[in-house]
Design a protein around this nucleic acid. Sequence first.
DNA 1: GTCCGTTGGG
DNA 2: CCCAACGGAC
Lengths: 315, 315
Amino acid sequence: MDLLEARLEQALLLKRVVEAIKDLVQDCNFDCNDSGIALQAMDNSHVALVSMMLKAEAFSPYRCDRNIALGINLTSLTKVLRCAQNDDILTLKAEDAPDIVNLTFESSESDRISEYDIKLMDIDQEHLGIPETEYAATISMPSAEFQRICRDLMALSESVSIEATKEGVKFSCIGDIGNGSVTLRNHANVEKPELNMEIELTEPVALTFSLKYLVNFCKATALSGTVKLCLSNEVPLLVEYGLAGSSYLRFYLAPKDRGLGGGDASNWLGSSDVVDKVRDNLQTGLFLGAGAETRAPEELAIAAMRIKVRYNIYV
Amino acid sequence: MDLLEARLEQALLLKRVVEAIKDLVQDCNFDCNDSGIALQAMDNSHVALVSMMLKAEAFSPYRCDRNIALGINLTSLTKVLRCAQNDDILTLKAEDAPDIVNLTFESSESDRISEYDIKLMDIDQEHLGIPETEYAATISMPSAEFQRICRDLMALSESVSIEATKEGVKFSCIGDIGNGSVTLRNHANVEKPELNMEIELTEPVALTFSLKYLVNFCKATALSGTVKLCLSNEVPLLVEYGLAGSSYLRFYLAPKDRGLGGGDASNWLGSSDVVDKVRDNLQTGLFLGAGAETRAPEELAIAAMRIKVRYNIYV
DNA sequence: GTCCGTTGGG
DNA sequence: CCCAACGGAC
């Protein structure tokens, strides 16, 4: 008897989610419990963090009798998901103490049934239920527009500065061939609310980020017409794609320090001894100061990313 | 206060123009004066020449207080123009003695404004306002048809012979796998004049050209439904795409000599000492004979292309 | 949504 | 030099 059984009306949802994160994360746990399936993982260079939540309501039916972590290689999962047609019905199944997860794809007329087993792996990783945070600025905008801006500016530079004020948001960059900026003003359209650009702001913010990562996050564009950008100084940017129900796909990205001349984010954590030491510390949470070990694990990831920002500044 | 300000209702026009010439020319001056913006440049191997004229009437408004040459790298310009949506309103701005040119893209609802600065470069190049010439044959035909013919024949050969007679025009080629030809007869269609094929001819002409270059010129196809081919013996072919108003995009291409066996146009000016000498001469206009130095610069480019043809014949 | 062509990375 | 990913066109 299966311990987990989750039936998704459209395989497309999971296909898109996994396509959107597979280049950031190689292997990770799908943490299943009775409220749904969650995934959290930092990317290889620990500059970005992915957090997915598929609530039980996204499935019909959904059943998970006991907490279970399914360690999956995302390249393998991608290969299998590509075998599903977009509007196939997808069912995830796992037994107790499983060494495989089973994916079943049924055509809507159910005259074709495909079944795949993927081998599981043991991944030693805490689940980091990242806490909801108050941000200085929260921008809602069409996800396609955000994608377009990131791609456009990448033609000029590796970094983008995002400045949010009450009136609007300005994305700008400085490059060898010239400079560029895109300015969006608040815009409300009652007929097409998906095209709205809205800012909630307690204080103006300006931060700089790696465009390479942002463009990567934008693979999730098809998942939602709207994206939310949440910024506070010296805190990782949150890029959120809301899914049906209150499911979501979130990306966090540590800001870059301008003082270092706009080097690639993957460069500022290089491979020197010092950097290795810091990297170890990030993973163990050591740099978090007294009391770190007593904090909830969900705070550690974000805190670790803040430390990386500091490190970047102080070196 | 800006010296130049030129507002284009549709960014698409400039996008297409620059896409059509960027593979022929790396860097060139945009010569701006009160009558509009002009560009002339020879390609690297000096076999082809591009001449663009965007009249002031193509812009609204257009203002240029003083003659100014904006030296622009077309790869950079292409990158920036790709950041414009096709129906954005595009505004070009430059100050007096500028080191950058500013491009502004506004969405028609103008809730998005993108601004890019491109660094300028000093390009030491005369403006060669090429003179209008009388040609032995002038062919008007649908631009898509010309593109199709060039692409088709390129499958067989690197060169095409264009023969114009009173009755029609024949494009033909000889290749290793076989020979090919496309013959068009005069054709007038009152309902769809864009599909007309018309020849004005004072004497029959037959010349051979590099298909690689012609295919390249055909990137301009989307700019106009009609293309004009103008031929005279031993004179460069003129391929003209007319734009709204009397703006235009023109390409000139030196004929090839059949005696050399249809080598690639970029090959027949190779790298021997003799060739280098000739190339220098082409650039200084020396081979033009007595009186060359007193000729208007606009004649030199065309004359230089004729000399290359001769050189090719006499070697 | 699918397919093809181009570009960047290994 | 070959393969994968991304973007644009149909």
